[in-house]
Simulated assay, not measured.
Amino acid sequence: MYPLHREREQPIYSARAHVFQIDPATKRNWLPASKHAATVSFFYDANRSVYRIISVGGTKAIINSTITPNMTFTKTSQKFGQWADSRANTVYGLGFSTEQHLQQFAEQFREVKEAARLAREKSQERYELANPALNIAAPQFSNELSEECHSPPLLTVNGPGEEKLFRSKSAEVELTVEKERVKKMLSEGSMCEINLEAELFTLQDSNAKLVAALQEANSSVAQWKQQLAEYQEETDRLREQVAELEAQLGHPAAAHADSEELSRSLEELETLLSIKEQEIHSLQSKTTDVGQLEREREEAIHRLKDLERRNTELEGQVQSAEKTLASSRDERGKAEVEVQHIIQALDVKICDLNDLRQSLAKLMDK
């Protein structure tokens, strides 16, 4: 891999994506190359006529891939694509935020791949023009290269009596270079076959993971429905308790406010249930990558925790209402005791007044 030279390489296109690399041990699982989304850019080296894809995460290059005409960028899902790099002996994967970004990157990859092919053809034409002696032998290359099929012509430099043969050193060097280039092309072809097989295993593993994730999501949805039914029963019980408190306290305004709050909480729970059902349908209707399913599962867990927290708050409100009812009962008991005292005092006063009336009546009779 060439190092990145800012002074001679110019960026062509850049995009933000999550970068992954194939696990070198299993050739099936994806390993994240960075914790967050990174900038992935196409660069062009004018001196070498080479196109590269480069991405830097922190202080190291997580992608440094030279584009060749035999590379292929494959979209494995709506937001994920990958390509194999035989020189780096790995497979790169990119996860984009939207399908549009993935489509733009794939189109740019095809354009750069075509440009790399044209650049290679031009370089081969210039090489053949500079080395005309290779134009005849070049089409005869095959997988079984041998020294005999690349032997240069023999030259007779002395007379008929002395036939000393000399091999042209320049032609030998040129043929050695050409042979190495052909071997390299053949090795790249075999590496492409290996990478295609690795991509097939990766797709099968991803499909299995997606099926497992969907099954887990379906089981989680059943649990959510059961918990929601329990929450609804708890809400009904809380409503009955609030109605009883309203009847005992004789404060319909406060009870009505608590009832409205409980109604709003119930509506929120029903809204969350409908949202969950929509998420279930979306999961069943489309196939997403494993990372996205895990993120959506974490979000659902967070929402479930929010529901539990709301239920705890409702229980706290019921406990506070019960405390208010108990305090109201205590105040009512105290008021009844005071009324009894007043009634007793009034009875005493009435008896005194009755005695006074009888005394007055006796005085009037006398």
Rank of each mutant, 00 (worst) to 15 (best):
L269M: 15
K276I: 01
W30C: 00
T312S: 12
E162P: 10
S359L: 15
V348Q: 13
L245M: 11
E197G: 08
S190K: 10
E246C: 08
L356R: 05
V91F: 00
L272N: 03
L304H: 15
G93A: 07
V221L: 00
T288A: 13
L273P: 03
L31I: 07
F166S: 03
E147S: 03
E163L: 15
T76D: 10
A300H: 12
T90L: 02
S274H: 14
G161R: 00
A119L: 05
S263F: 02
P32I: 06
S219I: 08
E230D: 04
P32W: 01
A17D: 01
R167P: 04
R120M: 13
E299F: 13
A137P: 01
H18A: 05
M191H: 07
H36I: 02
H150K: 11
P252Q: 10
S320Y: 01
R126Q: 12
G161L: 12
A61C: 10
S77Y: 09
V40I: 05
K35M: 03
Q232V: 07
N70H: 09
R310N: 09
P160H: 04
F20V: 03
E172D: 04
E240C: 06
Q292A: 04
K225L: 09
Q292L: 05
I194F: 11
K169Q: 13
K349N: 10
V157D: 06
Q100H: 01
V112G: 01
E111C: 14
R357M: 13
L196T: 10
K35D: 08
C149Y: 05
Y231G: 14
F42G: 01
G333Q: 15
S265A: 13
L210A: 14
S220D: 11
A243Y: 01
F43N: 07
L307H: 06
S274Q: 10
S259W: 05
R264K: 12
L262I: 08
K179F: 04
A37P: 14
L325D: 03
N311W: 08
A254E: 04
L249G: 11
Q140D: 00
A119Q: 06
V348P: 00
L134T: 06
E338Y: 08
R117G: 14
I275L: 11
K276L: 13
L154C: 02
K286W: 09
K209A: 09
I280S: 15
E172S: 04
N29G: 02
F105Q: 01
R181M: 06
L210T: 01
H18F: 15
